[in-house]
Amino acid sequence: MLKIQHLSKVFAGPTGKVEALQDVSLTVRAAEFVAIQGVSGCGKTTLLLAAGGLLKPTSGQITVQGEDFYALSPERRAQFRARRIGFVFQQFHLMPFLNASDNIRLANLAVADHLTDERVPELIKQFGLAHRQEHLPEALSTGERQRIALARALLNKPALLLADEPTGNLDEQNGAAVLQALKDYAASGGAVLLVTHDIRVGQYAHRRLRLERGRLAD
């Protein structure tokens, strides 16, 4: 599903080059839930953004479902991302001016698929948001916001779900619910790549990897 080969990413920093990722190779198969752990600044988010087609690597190759999407034009890559990849972030990043159901529908904005839109009520029900669907994010709890973000990421049934510290701002109960949802999604056939500090992830992920100073360790 997701195949990363010899990925390196170098940033130009104020004091010189910063090697955020060094020769990272990784495969996440369909129906697999892989968690990457590491301290802050070890390159977890960089790896996730590169895997999601948002950050072009300095070297190496990334394919999703066999497609080297960095070889695509920016427009086609954006479409590819919209259809095949879902994102969940620590800060949720919901649109403050859209209510809960419209925030979920936002994932369909670039796809514009009526059938996809019909899944919104199902996801609202699945994540226990039926009574909150008309509320703006500012009126929701952090747990509810993250569930909306998760529902948004799953709306298009992406082949690959990328989650960046999705439990970082949640209490134990909500965090566990999110991890369970990720596990469930993997069980339904999706590939999940999670980067997190959360030690509970061991109970949910199929594999755990450590990222240290931009390199994957066993």
């Binding site: 948002l54 427009e75 954006a78 919209a82 990043h93 936002l106 994932a107 904005l109 670039a110």
Partner: peptide, 16 residues
């Protein structure tokens, strides 16, 4: 900025 970044992550292009 963040809204723009999320919209881009959700597949919107520069023109959109």
């Amino acid at each position: 900025r963040l809204e723009i970044a999320i919209l881009r992550a959700l597949g919107l292009g520069t023109l959109q």
